[in-house]
């Protein structure tokens, strides 16, 4: 089934340096429409930076980004980001706004929907993540897991073609991780194109269609999960897996 109007996403030979620090050294990543690519690797390997480059929160020094096969580097970056939802490790909900206002803000201000319609759509999204009853609460009064589900609803409200998850469960208490991962798995099954930077090897292995292992700003190995987890080719991936599993 395909609940989402998702598209494919490709990063080609992406380079990025901060001063003398060469963070991305020619990354290639292709995510087929409706599939989930997980990106794993040690901290500081450039995974989170890669996400920010692919939605142009940070402009790449070199390389190309294609959404549905078309280069988006010359597009207005703000319009590009409306097509790519992003979920952060620290949730980053807007604390001065209620839950439903967090979700409807972009609908009202960017989609220019009238307030009532934006609220209705936001409530619908909140219902999908099981938090409609928290619509008028403040984010601070929600648990971490609930906040992250609201953040997912906020990103989904814009009907993105691709969803990015940047270590979405790393800041959660262990008992709250499951609910968020289950929601992400539902999205994946629903046909959303997703790039998931994660330390959850179980999720990476069971939900994603491809796994990319990054280290030191390069893609060291990538392939289907069975191959990556059961038959790692490189020493670096073998070392990483024996550290985390």
């Amino acid at each position: 089934m395909s609940e989402f109007a998702s598209g494919s996403l490709t990063g080609k030979n992406l380079h990025l340096s901060f001063g003398s620090n060469h963070v991305l050294r020619g990354i290639d990543l292709h995510v087929e429409k409706g599939t989930t690519a997980s990106v794993i690797g040690p901290s500081g390997s450039g995974k989170s930076t890669l996400l920010r480059v692919m939605n142009r929160l940070i402009e790449p020094d070199q390389g190309d980004i294609l959404l549905d096969g078309r280069s988006v580097l010359k597009d207005n970056p703000d319009e590009l980001r409306q097509r790519i939802g992003m979920v952060f490790q620290q949730f980053n909900l807007f604390p001065h706004k209620t839950v439903v206002d967090n979700v409807s803000l972009a609908l009202r201000k960017l989609r220019k929907l009238p307030a009532e319609q934006a609220r209705a759509e936001a409530l619908e999204q909140l219902d999908l993540v099981g938090l409609k009853h928290k619509a008028d609460a403040r984010p601070a009064n929600l648990s971490g897991g609930q906040q992250q589900r609201v953040a997912i609803a906020r990103a989904l409200a814009m009907k993105p073609e691709v969803m990015f998850f940047d270590e979405a469960t790393s800041a959660l208490d262990p008992e709250l991780v499951k609910g968020v991962l289950a929601l992400m798995a539902d999205l994946a099954k629903g046909g959303m194109t997703m790039v998931v930077v994660t330390h959850e090897m179980g999720f990476s292995r069971n939900v994603s269609d491809t796994v990319t292992f990054m280290d030191g700003g390069v893609v060291v190995e990538s392939g289907p999960p069975e191959q990556i987890f059961t038959n790692p080719q490189t020493e670096r991936l073998q070392g990483f897996l024996s550290d985390v599993l």
Partner: peptide, 21 residues
């Protein structure tokens, strides 16, 4: 927190709108 600006920009708001809203 920097994450607030980042989250707003990630939704598709411009720098100015993100600051304002």
């Amino acid at each position: 927190e920097k994450g607030q600006l980042e989250a707003s920009r990630a939704l598709g708001f411009s720098y100015g709108s993100s600051m304002r809203l």
